[in-house]
Design a protein around this nucleic acid. Structure first.
Length: 644
DNA sequence: TGGGGTCCT
DNA sequence: AGGACCC
């Protein structure tokens, strides 16, 4: 997804092996890069070594990715009306579409057969969408789009009388439609999994990755078939693929297996007992017991994890709130940067604090959103209002670079009340940052670093991570307080906040220009995103980059949808959907956003049914609606118009 | 060897 | 406050 976002900002990256770099780590890589042997999360050195042609983009600042993540989330939510949508990280969503599908199927009874198939009615999507886009046609006889498990259902449609339920078929078409919506409206490709619970949906969604979807048709209630299909699917898998089986759980289980199970079983060949061979789902289910799981992993958790081995999972899709529960920002330090004296620590904390305050202003002030984008306050009505008020601030420091440290070891945190004046937007942000240092942060840092020891000012600290978080976001404003708060003088010497960290805040190195690139600024700024920022923050960012505001207006919008229509009504709420249709069955959809691969990585001799234009840019513009579409999906896009 | 998040204890 | 999990 990071690469896909970078490609929206800089289309010359399309079709090339691209890696997103965060410090010395390759956070993610495009599929072209993976085809050349680059792994996700490998060290930068290893990546460059394996793939000298790898193009690196710095992804330490997440602003751009947050922006697209939010847009996708809001687009999907608005399409699904009242259905719960849960975010997992920045690029995955779970959707419980039970109610929508149930209602859709109920409507069918009153409808006579239509030559175009079935109309699936959706909530209103957004104001730029043509008005007949509140739903889609699908052909129910085409079974499920994409891949189907078990496979034989796909080929022998009504063979054993084993045919997918009408609801899973509808859910599958719904997922397909929404993926198409995200692609056409935002420009991000995605994959999806459709199944009757979260774990299975996520699992099958990962089976066919770039731009595909997979439906697991079997229902947990249909016991015989369900058991055999799900076991065939799950048993060979590394248990790590199941949500909840993390490193600790697997280590605990492996300890037990190698310690006590091995002597009693001949199932594991000698070489399979080594610690780096995966524990499979089948092995755990056959050789361990529910009781053992509960003993080793805790009553509650053990029971849940044990059920997962059979694909049983009743976790609800928990609607993600409009605002997150915590907002944090962090920076990491290697041995060179990470040896700091006290004033150095304070300087780094101030840099982070200032970034955090800017983020709070972007994400927490004003509100009124349309499709993930905050509306500019109308020129005459400025009052920028906080939508949430965090009440706590937390400082976390990880010390040491010793290399032996277990993940997360050496992290210590302290928290304190967040002083109310931080919300006063009339005070320059830098002053509020410095006030936060004075008030709780330097004391918190002292608690962590000096641990009750008396002041030792000359000391050097070895620091590898600093994280600052605000938590406990409240809707109701805090009581006003302490006017004297800002009056004391600063403790630390830094005055300008235009630091390297800040500078990286939005800019990203562009590797090279493109003859046919869509509008993007040489600075690396994403003008589409910039245009959506509140004016004052936008000016702030522009000033940092030394860009004249007039340049902004000359740039074309990145998605040229302006010509499609003159904008119909505003964001009316989602269509009303009966809240309480009974749901014994729960189709889930999950999908990943990921980068698009318009051209086969194996250069030009690959099958090229695509046009020259597509090969060069990967994108074409739909004649009907102006949406920017990638070549490989234009057929589907046209079918979409034909359908509506 | 990132830069984030959520939930549970 | 820390530790598990997720991306």
């Amino acid at each position: 997804m990071y690469v896909a976002c970078e490609r929206l900002r800089n289309p010359s990256l399309i079709g090339k092996p691209v890696g997103v770099q965060q410090k010395g780590l390759l956070a993610t890589a495009s599929y072209e890069a993976r085809a050349l042997g680059v792994d996700k999360l490998c060290s930068l050195r290893e990546a460059k070594q394996r793939c000298p042609s790898l193009i690196l983009v710095n992804g330490e600042d997440l602003t751009l990715y947050r922006y697209y993540s939010r847009r996708v989330f809001n687009l999907v939510r608005s399409a699904l009306g009242t259905s719960p949508v849960e975010k997992l990280g920045m690029d995955e969503l779970f959707c419980d579409v039970t109610d929508m599908v149930t209602e859709h199927l109920a409507e069918l009874k009153d409808t006579s057969p239509h030559p175009r198939g079935r109309w699936f009615s959706l909530a209103e999507v957004d104001r730029t969408t043509p008005s007949d886009n509140k739903g889609f046609w699908y052909d129910p006889s085409s079974v499920c789009p994409g891949y189907i498990i078990p496979e034989d259902i796909a080929t022998a449609a009504a063979d054993n009388g084993v045919t997918p339920s009408t609801e899973i078929i509808a859910a599958s078409h719904l997922a397909n439609h929404i993926r198409h919506l995200v692609l056409s409206q935002i420009g991000l490709g995605s994959s999806a999994g459709i199944a009757y619970n979260k774990t299975l949906a996520k699992l099958v969604g990962n089976l066919h990755k770039p731009h595909q979807q997979t439906t697991l048709t079997v229902h947990p209630g249909a016991t015989d078939e369900y058991i055999s299909v799900v076991r065939e699917l799950l048993d060979p898998l590394d248990a790590r693929k199941l949500m909840g089986f993390g490193s600790k759980v697997l280590h605990t289980l492996r300890d037990h297996v190698t310690g006590s199970v091995r002597p009693f079983t001949t199932d594991l060949a000698v070489e399979d007992r080594r610690s780096d061979t995966p524990l499979t789902v089948g092995f755990l289910r056959q050789h361990l017991t529910k009781q053992l799981f509960c003993t080793l992993l805790g009553m509650q958790n053990g029971q849940k994890l044990w059920d997962l081995l059979d694909g049983k999972d009743e976790e609800p899709v928990k609607p993600s709130p409009e605002f997150p529960l915590t907002i944090s920002i962090e920076d990491s330090f290697d041995e060179r940067r990470g040896i700091l004296d006290w004033s150095g620590v304070l300087r780094e904390i101030e840099i982070l604090t200032n970034s955090l305050l800017r983020r709070l202003e972007i994400e927490l002030v004003d509100g009124g959103e349309i499709e993930g984008v905050r509306t500019d306050p109308s020129p005459s009505q400025p009052p920028r209002k906080w939508q949430r008020y965090p009440s706590q601030i937390r400082l976390t420091i990880r010390g040491g670079h010793s290399r032996e440290i277990a993940y997360n070891a050496n992290r210590e945190s302290r928290s304190a009340a967040l002083p109310v004046p931080v919300f006063d937007l009339d005070v320059p942000r830098i002053e509020r940052s410095q006030a936060l240092i004075r008030q709780p942060l330097s004391a918190l840092a002292k608690q962590i670093l000096d641990k009750g020891v008396e002041s030792k000012i000359t000391e050097k600290y070895e620091i590898s991570i600093i994280n600052i978080a605000v938590t406990h976001l409240q809707i109701t404003p805090p009581e006003k307080a302490i006017n004297a708060y800002f009056s004391s003088e600063t403790i630390i010497g830094e005055s300008s906040m235009n630091t390297s960290h800040e500078r990286s805040a939005i800019g990203v190195a562009h590797i090279n220009g493109s003859k046919r690139a869509r509008p993007s600024h040489a600075s690396g700024l994403d003008f589409g995103m910039l245009r959506e920022l509140p004016p004052d923050i936008r000016e702030d960012v522009l000033r940092e980059y030394g860009i004249d505001a007039s340049e902004l207006d000359l740039e074309e919008p990145p998605n040229k949808q302006s010509k499609s229509n003159s904008v119909s009504a505003a964001n009316t709420g989602p269509e009303d959907i009966p809240a309480d249709s009974p749901s014994e069955r729960i189709p889930e959809i999950t999908w990943n956003l990921q980068n698009r691969t318009p051209v086969s990585p194996s250069t030009s001799d690959a099958e090229t049914s695509s046009s020259t234009e597509e090969i060069e840019t990967g994108v074409t513009e739909c004649e009907l609606c102006g949406a920017v579409i990638f070549g490989w999906s234009m057929d589907a896009h046209k079918a979409y118009h034909a359908g509506s």
